[in-house]
Design a protein around this nucleic acid. Structure first.
Lengths: 259, 259
DNA sequence: TAGGTGTACTGGTAGGACCAGTGTGCTAGA
DNA sequence: TCTAGCACACTGGTCCTACCAGTACACCTA
């Protein structure tokens, strides 16, 4: 008799208790994902939200903190109308990657490898796909670098970052942009002190200019393969001397043939 | 006179108010990042933390929610000793990427591009650097795929993922492994329904086996360039038919010459 | 000794209170 | 009439207290 009932026996699945604030987060996230809330829109105030969701203010606030840490909203006291829905979300991706790096004890070598691959691909796509406007933006960023070269090392560094950013955004793949931005920031944070005290700064600057100029030329020529090869080579030459022989050998494996 | 004081004038910089919970988050994050807290360790209870930090319980809870949403800790009621420090995982990365996708900042095409580049490089490094044990692991993962091919599509998929994981981990760059893992997860989540209803499953399985076998052979030969080229080609052939002509053209730009 | 039960923790949530910013409208003064 | 300044209403930031619901562990009983 029991066996005849077996087929009809309901299949229960394990449940995980859902905390109130998680429901709140999910509902607001959903509203953003589905476009009911677009960047610039304002959420109701915390006191309104607690009425709408039927929860206490503490619960609402926990939800808002989670959303804020995810970069979805931003709240500021005194702002009429409550928290603001934010536009960018690459910040969250970058933060997640940074956490990963810090937890995983990832070394500079691995980060350089990552940069070679991601920035290289971004350069390649930028070379193949850029239009007039995009090329103009890259040319201008490069010009800024040349200007800043005479000012200070810091100014040049900033212009350098801006140039990489311009190139990456021309790849029209925001994942590449976000990842190369994160990797560059992290590498810089790890190596600034080492690089500064090594070699003649102005020589470094000239060398960097020359290299970047070279692959900008390849971009102009729409020669993606060459541009990528040069970009990767650039990183190897720039950071290689500061790595262990082991790491140096590894990153060399990722070089591409030129021409 | 004022001009003589100008040089001594202190340079004030803009300040951003730091909220109490942010300090709490920062301190706990720091403890985890510096290794004072390792996965499995327990934080003090919320009531203890509020005493240690000198803030209210609400503030402590907001901080813990942020940390929890970041995947750094996990808390459960009744657990003696408070929240548990979590092991590093790519789960948070996948979530951040999913958010990125859902916000419409990125499409499947861009994800495929990212996978081509990252997985390709992982395969290349695996080919160049693997030792006996690593090769054994990859061979075994491939054998599992062959076994699972006769069982079910789901089993095969799982074995497929495991194979990619084995290869990625042989690149000995955890950034590559993690990135290819979360990118693959996200792509699968976005495309599973589309791929299932297209073509003969068993034919897809055989095709996948053949391709993977091909670049496993290149790995055996320590031919990193070929292995990477094949891995990238694999992705183009596998996903290309399901992309728009535009996206298809883009991902083709990232192909590498074979041989 | 084995089992059940009670207790002392844990986090989850509610509600109230106060402070400190911020924007706006109104008012008093020019 | 116009404007400068102030008061107010609103925002989030923080604190406090209280209670509920799980969990683990020790104790107590059969």
């Amino acid at each position: 008799m029991t066996s005849s009932r077996d087929e009809a026996r309901p299949q229960f699945t394990s449940v995980t208790p859902v905390r109130a604030y998680e429901s709140v987060v999910a509902q607001i996230e959903d509203a953003v994902f589905t476009g009911q809330l677009v960047p610039g829109d304002r959420l109701p105030s915390e006191r309104d939200l607690m009425a709408q969701f039927g929860v206490s203010r503490g619960t609402v606030r926990e939800a808002l903190r989670v959303l804020e840490s995810g970069g979805l909203i931003r709240s500021r006291p005194g702002d009429p109308g409550g928290a603001t829905v934010q536009a960018n979300s690459s910040a969250r991706l970058a933060k997640a990657l940074t956490t990963f790096v810090k937890l995983g004890q990832i070394g500079v070598g691995e980060l350089i490898e990552f940069r070679m691959v991601v920035e290289g691909s971004a350069v390649r796509l930028a070379a193949e796909l850029h239009d007039e406007a995009a090329l103009g933006a890259m040319e201008e960023a490069f010009a800024r670098m040349e200007e800043a070269a005479g000012v200070s090392y810091e100014a040049f560094s900033a212009a350098d970052v801006a140039f990489h950013l311009a190139v990456a955004s021309c790849s029209s793949n925001s994942l590449f942009s976000a990842c190369s931005e994160f990797a560059r920031d992290t590498v810089l944070a790890l190596t600034t002190e080492n690089l500064k005290e090594s070699g003649d700064p102005s020589e470094r600057i000239q060398e960097t200019l020359r290299r970047h100029g070279a692959y900008l030329q390849a971009i102009r020529d729409r020669d993606g393969r060459t541009a990528e090869a040069l970009a990767r080579q650039d990183l190897v030459d720039y950071y290689g001397p500061h790595l262990s022989p082991d790491e140096r050998a590894r990153i060399r494996l990722l070089l591409l043939p030129v021409g």
